[in-house]
Amino acid sequence: MTERTALIASSHGLHARPASLFTQAVAKSGAKVTIAKAEGKAVNAASILGVISLGIENGDTVTLSTDSAEATSVLDDLVGMLERDLDAE
């Protein structure tokens, strides 16, 4: 299990469009990834409803985890994405 943390940069948090872009990127990676807030429950990071239900805001720290063989490159890409302001793109 590989874990990485990311600081959410999107100005309105991980809602709506940023959540949709992020979950699509997870689905495309083919890896099974979970996302969790601080001490909270981990949800399937490819699920837009799961991600939205966490209510992740701008400035929150989240933890991504995966067992994927390409864990490092998959998580690097996803963390990079979360640390950009997706609302502005």
């Binding site: 699509q24 949800v43 399937n44 699920s47 409803l49």
Partner: peptide, 14 residues
């Protein structure tokens, strides 16, 4: 497109 993602959402199916 966003609605289609909701229909195939893994959390919903679970």
């Amino acid at each position: 497109e966003a609605q289609a993602f909701m229909a195939e959402d893994p959390t919903l199916e679970a």
